[in-house]
Nucleic acid binder design. Structure first.
Length: 307
DNA sequence: AATGAAACCTGACAGC
DNA sequence: TGCTGTCAGGTTTCAT
């Protein structure tokens, strides 16, 4: 997938194009594993809702909704009633202001959210409705503006659902301070690469940016996370921030399936220094880049530059 | 509690 | 051409 820079690129593209727009109708394909909420619930939550914000937490895209079709939840048959009740009680737990808001809007409260995770090959596009339908399109949202948001995902590891008050573990690498970052790895015996991929610690790094960050920091991927010295952690922290910022500026990396909301690929793959370069010379010292497997993932590093 | 491996899917590509 | 095997940006679940 899309790691943090690709998801951020998609978020920005969506935010520019769909904030303030209203979702008029929703089509979902019959691939149940894609939908973590029942498709009927997703459809009735989204239909009629206005998009107020598009945010990102790690690799999750959060689309904030308002002004849904009032009362849609209240006219459900017995089969759906349990879910609707569960949703309301979850919402009630949240805050007093939400309870106040839900009096006015009912189906979509101030905190109702459409959550999208792109998985390995997922993509969101914003298109004119006449645009050609790509293979593996699993969801289409028609907007009042005449455009559509489409969810495309060949490998079907992507997920979408509706919820309120979405939370997820881990710290945001671009917002966290060095101290917060350092404490994540204390006492951990797992390889530093595995720790970087663990979304419960740091959210947003995936295989490409873990390898690239470790190269820039001069740290071998198999080093025990807890064995890293203060100075190494400081370098790693800075490398991660630098790599992510540069990748976002380049619109992400397109290795195979990734494209942004306009169907454009990213450019950062041309800046990769180790990822996908196994057997090629290190750009710094000329040593052959090694490819090993760590945490079940292809892992690339320079045996001379990384200690 | 922490760690690693397997499973979930489909498509692209290398090698025969 | 066409088959088989391998690999792929992620996450969850299960076994150790």
């Amino acid at each position: 997938m899309p790691e943090l820079p690709e998801v951020e690129t998609v978020r920005r593209g969506l935010a520019e194009r769909v904030i303030g727009d209203r979702i008029e109708s929703v089509w979902l394909s019959g691939k149940p594993q894609t939908f973590k909420s029942p498709p009927r619930e997703i459809a009735r939550t989204l239909e009629g809702a206005r998009i107020t914000a598009v945010r990102r937490m790690g690799k999750h895209i959060i689309i904030d909704l308002a002004d849904g079709l009032a009362g849609a939840n209240l006219s459900l048959g017995p089969a759906s009633r349990g879910r609707a009740t569960a949703r309301r009680s979850a919402a009630t737990r949240n805050s007093q202001s939400e309870t106040r808001n839900s009096r006015k809007t009912k189906a979509v409260t101030a905190h109702t959210q459409w959550i999208v995770h792109l998985g390995m090959t997922g993509a969101l596009q914003v298109t004119r409705s006449e645009a050609e339908l790509l293979k593996h399109t699993h969801a289409i949202l028609q907007l009042a503006s005449g455009r559509e948001i489409r969810f495309i995902d060949p490998r079907r590891f992507g997920r979408m659902w509706v919820t309120s008050g979405f939370e997820t573990a881990g710290i945001e690498p671009l917002h966290a301070g060095l101290d917060e970052f350092t404490v994540l790895f204390r006492g951990r015996k797992t390889p530093i690469k595995s720790a970087l991929l663990n979304q419960k610690l740091l959210r947003g790094l995936g295989n490409i940016y873990a390898d690239e960050s470790l190269f820039r920091a001069g740290i071998r991927p198999r080093r025990q996370a807890g064995s890293l010295k203060r100075e190494e952690l400081r370098r790693l922290y800075q490398s991660i921030q630098q790599v992510l910022k540069e990748a976002i500026a380049a619109g992400g990396s397109s290795v195979s399936d990734y494209f942004d909301v306009e169907g454009e690929p990213g450019l950062f793959q041309t800046h990769h220094r180790v990822y996908g370069r196994g057997g090629e010379p290190c750009l710094v010292c000329g040593t052959s880049i090694k490819r090993i497997v760590v945490a079940g993932r292809g892992t690339h590093y320079c045996p001379k530059c990384q200690k």
